[in-house]
């Protein structure tokens, strides 16, 4: 008789422990989520390359696979916890929807190893372009070299793209700064750089920015270092240029 009672007490104790554990972990996770929510919108000064902010649930197939592979250890821990909960009170578990569990999983994942958490796009940052006016009709783009080095692209290629998109011309001065004809704001240059990254840096297959630009038989190829895909990218075309300013006299 007494044995049975003891057992009961023990199980109750354990049950209490488990419950406490569960509650604690839940609280922690929610708190962290809140923190993250608060921190995510406030990003640094550096503008980052992102197509459109993907929600956690919409991670691409590759990402999900990677997470599953590499977060196996964390998964196991999480499963242990959930198993204990199940034995505790199975009725509680039915309330947990898929999205709840998913957000909880991502909360844990972010906490333990944030680099696996699927928003790799946010990690790609380049320094903001420094654009100042050079006289009344020219702009000075001071950190072209730095930016193109960060993107692992030859600065000539970046400059060629800038000129084609902006429909102007320019030159490089002694300190490897770019002089662009026309008035441009840093914001405008930033937009052009963004589209450059979309076209010539981001891998079209896996959206990784860890890519190289190779030239073979007059064709440019984008070789992704992350997923190994190779894609052709169109060469830079200037397109139609209208006459601006005074008309030149046509030579007879």
């Amino acid at each position: 008789m007494s044995d049975v009672e003891e057992k009961k007490v023990v199980t109750e104790l354990f049950g209490d422990l488990n419950k406490k554990k569960k509650k604690k972990s839940k609280k922690e996770s929610t708190g962290e989520e809140d923190e993250e929510k608060a921190s995510t919108p406030v990003e640094g000064e550096d503008f980052e390359f992102k197509k459109k902010k993907k929600k956690k649930s919409k991670s691409s197939a590759a990402d999900a696979f990677d997470e599953q592979l590499e977060a196996a250890g964390i998964n196991e821990v999480a499963e242990e916890g959930s198993a204990e909960e199940k034995s505790d009170n199975a009725s509680d578990n039915t309330d947990l929807t898929y999205s709840d569990l998913l957000s909880r999983f991502f909360g844990i994942l972010r906490e333990n190893n944030p680099e696996l958490a699927g928003d790799r796009g946010t990690k790609y940052k380049i320094p903001p372009p420094v654009v100042t006016r050079d006289g009344s009709k020219k702009s000075l783009f001071a950190n072209v070299k730095e930016i193109s080095e960060r993107m692992k692209r030859p600065s000539e290629h970046v400059i060629q793209y800038l000129f084609a998109e902006l429909g102007t011309s320019g030159s490089i001065d002694g300190a490897s700064r770019l002089i662009i004809k026309g008035r441009f704001q840093p914001k405008q240059i930033e937009n052009v750089l963004r589209s450059y990254i979309m076209e010539y840096v981001a891998c079209p297959t896996c959206k990784s920015a860890n890519t190289l630009l190779q030239k073979e038989n007059r064709l440019y190829f984008l070789v992704c270092q992350a997923c190994g895909s190779t894609r052709t990218v169109s060469s830079i075309k200037t397109g139609f240029q209208a006459h601006v300013g005074r008309r030149k006299k046509v030579a007879a």
């Binding site: 902006l166 429909g167 102007t168 026309g182 008035r183 601006v244 300013g245």
Partner: peptide, 16 residues
């Protein structure tokens, strides 16, 4: 279809 912009004198622009 390419839509481009070109700067003219001052804050004037041209769309092609």
């Amino acid at each position: 279809v390419h839509i481009r912009i070109q700067q003219r004198n001052g804050r004037k622009t041209l769309t092609t």
